Amino acid sequence: MIFKSISEDLNISKNDFFYLFILTVFSILITYTLISFNQVLGIYCSDVFIYLSNSLVFAGYQSSILYLYLSPVICILTAILFKLGFLSEASLYLVTGVFCIFANIGIYVLLKNKFSSLLSICGAFLFGSFSLTLLWWANGTLDVPAVALSIWTIIFTILAVDNDSKYYKIAIPLFVLAVFTRYTALFLLPLILLYYLSKHDFFTNLDLLIRSRQEFSKKLKSYIKSEEFRNILKSCAIAFVLLVLFSATILAYGSNLSFITQSSTFASGSKGEVIDNAYTTDTFFYLHDFPNFLYSDYVSFDNVIPILNGSNPMSFFLIGLF
């Protein structure tokens, strides 16, 4: 009954399950292929070694490298597989690969909110076949898993604001999980707030506050008593519990909460400028390399940095199409 209700709110009909089945099989095949490929290729991103080390610590093994504040979500899930005896980098590939599958499904569900089933599955196939997506798919990095959780956060935020406020209790905890998967997911917060404010007549209420504080006070009191506000409070409580659990886990294993200070580092770019091999001063990098991100001819490596080269004609076709 609950599943049926959610499906209806997501605009997912019985016919969509056929498309979702095809998409899931497609995503599983990509994941299996890329896990096999990455095992042969080996680890080319140094961050993956850190995630494996963190996973070992969470699984009860000793490690001299403690960066446990980095993606506790992925590392804890990988640690579960380690405890079950699957002590290999393939476990990390599998965990990140599963998130990639959910990302692809999430793209379909998100698009289905506005488009037909056919257009939605085409969009999902495109997302799952972009060179940039495949480059980081099921290879132990956090990019696509964070995107997956971000997509589902957006989906349930839209449902909460537009349909039923009960979905805040899914959207906001998912947002916390996304942040603890990759801290750049914090950039979702302004998007969530803007969407919420756009649907709640922010400027009208602001005008009301300026013109008549008494009327605004009545409206505010009425909102505080509403079911939506109660659901937001409940979702924030769940999110706070998750925040405490992750923070306590990190501290319990002897690491610190360095993620608290990372936001300033991200904003300034100082860390990347000093030690990140991928740092570039090319202002137009994303502009002239954008076609390569869609479909490139081949991948080369600059030290340990994979580079997408040679724009495929399909890239320009898509750019022209949209």
Rank of each mutant, 00 (worst) to 15 (best):
S120E: 12
I307P: 05
A248L: 15
L188E: 05
T96C: 12
L68W: 13
N256H: 09
S91G: 10
F17N: 04
F156V: 07
T31V: 12
A252R: 08
G123T: 03
H288T: 06
P72D: 07
L321N: 00
Y286T: 13
G254A: 11
A248K: 14
L308E: 05
L194Q: 11
Y223H: 14
F187Y: 11
S270M: 07
D164C: 15
S13Q: 08
V98R: 05
Q62G: 00
A59W: 15
K199T: 06
V244H: 07
V98A: 03
G128N: 11
M1K: 08
D143G: 05
A178M: 04
L220E: 09
G85Y: 07
F115D: 04
A252P: 02
G106K: 08
Q62S: 04
N205Q: 09
Q39A: 01
F102R: 10
N104H: 05
S129A: 10
K114T: 05
L174V: 07
Q262K: 03
I232Y: 09
F301R: 02
L245S: 05
S117L: 08
N231D: 15
P72R: 08
L245A: 03
E273W: 11
L52V: 12
D282M: 03
S88G: 02
A138E: 04
N139G: 05
L294Y: 03
S120T: 07
I172E: 15
S300C: 02
L87K: 00
S131I: 09
L20R: 04
R230N: 00
S264C: 00
L174G: 07
S91M: 11
L135V: 01
N312T: 10
C236K: 01
A252S: 10
S91E: 11
F317R: 00
L132I: 13
F284G: 00
L111W: 04
D201R: 09
I307N: 08
K271I: 01
N113T: 10
I43L: 08
K218T: 14
I170A: 14
F156Y: 13
W152S: 04
F187D: 00
A252E: 10
G272I: 09
I50W: 09
K271H: 03
W136N: 02
Y19M: 05
I192W: 06
L209Y: 12
A278Q: 14
F130Q: 03
K225V: 10
V241D: 06
P145A: 09
F125I: 12
I101D: 02
I35P: 05
I232K: 07
F187K: 01
S268M: 05
S217P: 12
L321G: 00
I155L: 06
L119S: 06
D164Y: 15
C236M: 14
L188R: 02
I76H: 04
